[in-house]
Design a protein around this nucleic acid. Structure first.
Lengths: 296, 296
DNA sequence: TCCGATTATATTCGATCTGACAATAAGGGA
DNA sequence: TCCCTTATTGTCAGATCGAATATAATCGGA
């Protein structure tokens, strides 16, 4: 899963009919699958992958196709890069995340259109569970994941939401469902096999990771304004961020330094240009702290 | 990597000469490697694995042994259980983490004996880099990982520390080193192949995870006192925690509920017994928040 | 040239969290 | 009864964070 952000839109590298993640049996000639992935993508997009991370390894028996007696092992990765110029070849292209997960984009301030439809269909699914105990359990899972009652929307629950929709038969991939899923504008574009689930895993991981490691900068150009940086984070998180607070956080952590230049602008006061202080990667150990540890 | 905590000591399930992690080619009969691991360990220890998590998948070409043309894929896991009764069979036993990582145990309040020796040897290694730029880079990595100058010790950097020691030739596994590593009481017991590195990965992951997900309870008996819970967390984190603050955190998050009983004690006022509120797993979505997101 | 629209940047304020520490309660043993 | 040990409750100051306000710089049109 290769991610880039362009003009405030989080993009995904796809192949084929735009519903398949880049994948393939990486040859023995590479030292590791990681380096195989890197070489392949750099050749396709012309841009180096700034960051690669393992997502999950699937080795379940059900994963084999027609043949038995042979287990297929799939290692999924999350990679970040920049999409510039028109590098999309005929074999691959870029798609917005939110075509696959329309319900995940809350950047307009209001919930996305169609989310209420999904919520209603989920409630039907909850009520459809015979057992009252099972009903309560389903109800609670839906309430947490989709922010029912007075709960806040939690953008890090992308995978849980997709799994619920799958279970409820509200996405096309869940062929076992009785009722037909809602239209694609509501339930998103389907992908091949379990690729949309892998995508959900990656979105979840990335939305979590940007909060404690400076990986956003892999998606930025060498120089950028603070608003551009904020828009990129918002694109990934799928929600709006308070501007002064975002600035404060970035500055007091000394993640960036001014270049001295200012940006030619789209109206309004010119913005200072910044660059990422690569030194922070060496200076600091990025590791969160939540338990009350003694400082000394 | 199977972990339990007993009497305030974090323990590790080992096989053979106590320097090998449980491992093996899991047969095709299991639905997934996960379930194979689960069955194997439950049979060996008599206790169910409460929690299993994938650590990392190795697929590098160097990982093959004598044979070429065939790539070995190893999936490493982290599992939590309880060690009770004398279930150690002849083929496996429990070892303390800190036999392998003596420098990681800071629970005495003072740094572990031998840490200063390691620091001194690391400084030698820093100075041994010819290039001054490389010296500065090494120096900074050591300073961060081992808390030099006035930096705080960060217990989540176990893997980084092990890798530095490896690079500096201060652990037995690094056979390429010129100088002999310090005695085992200082540099820890060696393990087979790269098992100690996998262990370091698991320790790092677990020390990080206990801070935002309630996995500690998988290591506790059904009922426990708050101090026992604290001691377990301290055993994993390798450092002391302030008691009142720990209580406050656990209580205000409603992670536990009183059983009504009190513990027969080892001197001092009897302690209330608690049990884990399994309901929190359903009630709450455990996902950290660090970036300044708008609340509404 | 003035004004307002737009965006950038700086500052303030209050609620909450958290680390550090103090104080009180309840049991056991000398 | 006194003292030791552990449990439990409470306080306080500093840091953090969300929210909102205030000021600055540029552009375009009246």
């Amino acid at each position: 899963m290769v991610v880039a952000v362009n003009h405030g839109e989080p993009c995904l590298l796809t192949i084929g009919q735009a519903d398949t993640l880049p994948s393939g049996p990486f040859a023995l000639e590479h030292r590791s699958p990681q380096s195989g992935l890197r070489g392949w993508v750099e050749h396709q997009t012309g841009h180096p992958l700034g960051y690669i991370e393992q997502l999950y390894t699937f080795a379940d028996r059900d994963r084999v196709g027609p043949e038995r007696q042979q287990r297929v092992i799939s290692i999924s990765y999350l990679a970040l890069t920049r999409k510039e110029q028109a590098t999309a070849s005929s074999t691959c292209g870029w798609q917005s995340w939110y075509e696959y997960f329309p319900w995940e984009d809350h950047r307009s301030g209001t919930p996305p259109v169609g989310l209420d439809i999904l919520r209603a269909r989920l409630i039907e699914w909850v009520d459809g569970a015979g057992d009252p105990a099972r009903q309560r359990e389903r109800r609670q899972r839906v309430a947490i994941a989709f922010g029912l009652d007075d709960r806040h929307w939690n953008e890090e629950l992308t995978l849980q939401r997709y799994e619920l929709l799958y279970e409820a038969g509200l996405v096309e991939e869940a062929s076992g469902g009785k009722a037909a899923p809602p239209p694609a504008a509501v339930s998103g574009k389907a992908m091949v096999a379990d690729h949309r689930r892998i995508l959900a895993t990656g979105v979840t991981r990335l939305r979590s990771k940007i909060k404690y490691r400076p990986v956003v900068f892999e998606l930025m150009r060498p120089t950028f304004t603070l608003l551009q940086l904020q828009r990129t984070v918002e694109a990934l998180a799928g929600r709006l961020i308070d501007k002064p607070n975002f600035r404060r956080l970035v500055e007091q952590q000394e993640l960036v330094e001014e270049t001295g230049d200012t940006s030619v602008d789209t109206g309004g006061r010119p913005a200072k240009l910044y660059r990422f202080r690569r030194a922070v990667l060496d200076e600091r150990a990025f590791a969160g702290t939540k338990l009350p540890m003694s400082r000394a």
